[in-house]
């Protein structure tokens, strides 16, 4: 019981910490990591409740739910990263996100994607080239 509560409680603390970081920090990658931490916290809780004492085998259902949840989290993370990279590629800063671009019939004004080498230094990115 107490070990179970410690593990699940740690999950709840992770959830709260992730939430705090998500809401307070501006940088998108920090937000993304934060939301993954919060998600990890929720998965912790699921793992904790699968425990049914030292003798009985654990409940497989929460385990399966966590597996499903992880895949969902991975998918969402991938999409957020792709959107983020696309946003970085767009040159001009938006004065206001509410302002629609002038013409729907004109072709997209997105500039060609920058090569990785042009990326501003210091921005963490999963595809930072090596070698």
């Amino acid at each position: 019981m107490s070990a179970q509560f410690l593990y699940g409680g740690a999950g709840i603390l992770l959830f709260a910490l992730g939430l705090w970081s998500l809401l307070v920090h501006e940088a998108l990658l920090r937000k993304l990591i934060a939301i993954n931490i919060a998600g990890g916290g929720v998965f912790h809780v699921f793992i904790a409740i699968a425990y049914r004492g030292d003798t009985a085998p654990p409940d497989p259902v929460p385990h399966a739910l966590v597996l499903t949840g992880i895949v969902v989290a991975v998918s969402a993370t991938a999409l957020v990263l792709a959107l983020h990279r696309r946003l970085e590629q767009a040159e001009e800063p938006a004065a206001d996100a509410e302002v629609l671009s002038e013409s729907a019939s004109a072709s997209s004004a997105a500039p060609p994607p920058r090569t990785p080498a042009e990326r501003t230094p210091g921005t963490p990115h999963p595809e930072t080239p090596h070698g």
Binding site: L22, L23, V24, D96, A97
Partner: peptide
């Protein structure tokens, strides 16, 4: 625009 800031929206939400 103020509402749109994450921290404001987050505080309201919580």
């Amino acid at each position: 625009r103020g509402l749109r800031a994450w921290s404001v929206a987050g505080a309201l939400w919580i």
